[in-house]
Amino acid sequence: MDHRPPTIKEIARQLNVSVSTVSRALSDHPRIGLQTRLRVQQLARELNYEPNTQAIFFKQKKTYVIGVVLPFIREEFFSQAISGMETAAMAHEYTILFGQSYDDTERERKVVAAMKKQRVDGLIISLAKETRRFDHLQALESTGTPVVYFDRVPPFAEAHKVYCNMYQGTAELVGWLYGRGYKRVALINGPEKMPASRERLNGYIEGVSRKKHKVDMQLVETTDFSRDSTYRAMEKLLSLKHPPVAIISFNDYVHMDAVQYAHRQGVAVNKDIVFVSYANLPITSYTAFPPIASIEQYPYGQGEKAMDLLIQVLNEKGLPDAGTRYYCEELAPTLVMH
């Protein structure tokens, strides 16, 4: 028995019509008469015919696949983001090819190169924490493959971006703490060269300055996001002659490590020192000491908007100014009290 899948040629042979007629009939082309269309479609159903998607994609010069590169899928923030991307992609009949950088720039480069070989139609990426050069992504764009950055975005304007305004959110968070009497506020920030870290630091400085207080940089520490690094940051803050009464953590994962260290040192968490954070992830509600307030960053919404933006850019390919226009969607973060 012949188990090969049926083809357009087989349908054309059985009905004694041309291959182009079958192709148009299967697409409900108005140039093909109704009776012929019905005959072709009926036989296609009987033969269990399925279109050759590879041939269709080759003809259209599209794969209907979007590459997505994230630091870690295990982090709830990014898993929520990719759920939003998938929802938006499926609504436009796209699928996702997913890769992780593990917050390593060289791995990020390799994953992007692999995406390029797979001929993805476009790429969405949240940058690795140490990424400073963007030639691997700019090279992808130079071949006609658009890139949309989300959450961790580059510092230059010539890029499609979706992100939350952490400068504004941090300034508001500092002001909220001062308004409740916490006037010695510390910040455990991320790596110094990360744009997201600079936004938080500048927002922190702005928030303190608005209250007519002098910024004490002894209250600013950094972490590379590892537990040991966050522990060292906490050790320095707790050893100050005048330790902080409130600590802002870079994200909820840094928060959990910071709180764990404080608790082990005998600090009455959220009494002696209150803790606030970013991301407002549901996982913190299952911990013994959740932050008393958090900045909601809408990961699902960011992912959904990033995918919608990329598909919009893809649909505008070929417009006269498509290569010179960049879209930026800045979400306003929300302060959530717990």
Rank of each mutant, 00 (worst) to 15 (best):
M1R: 11
D2A: 12
K9P: 07
I11Q: 00
I11D: 00
R13N: 15
V17I: 13
V19D: 08
A25P: 00
Q35D: 14
R37N: 13
R39F: 09
V40Y: 08
Q42C: 10
E46P: 05
E50F: 12
N52T: 12
T53W: 13
Q54P: 04
I56T: 14
V68W: 00
V69E: 04
V69K: 04
P71T: 02
F72Y: 15
I73E: 04
E75I: 02
S79I: 02
S79Q: 07
M85L: 10
A89D: 06
M90K: 12
S101K: 03
D103S: 13
E106P: 06
K110S: 09
K116S: 10
D121M: 06
G122R: 00
S126C: 01
A139E: 14
L140C: 01
E141W: 00
G144V: 06
V147K: 01
V148S: 04
Y149G: 03
V153G: 01
C164P: 09
T170F: 05
Y178R: 04
Y178K: 05
P191H: 08
A196L: 14
G203A: 09
R210Q: 14
K212S: 15
Q218G: 13
L219K: 06
S226F: 07
R227A: 14
S229Y: 07
K236R: 15
V267C: 08
I273P: 00
V274Y: 05
F275W: 09
N280Y: 03
P282S: 11
P290S: 02
P291K: 09
D308W: 06
L309E: 03
L310C: 04
I311T: 07
V313T: 06
G318L: 04
A322C: 08
G323T: 15
T324L: 11
L331V: 09
A332E: 13
P333Q: 03
P333V: 02
L335S: 10
M337P: 04
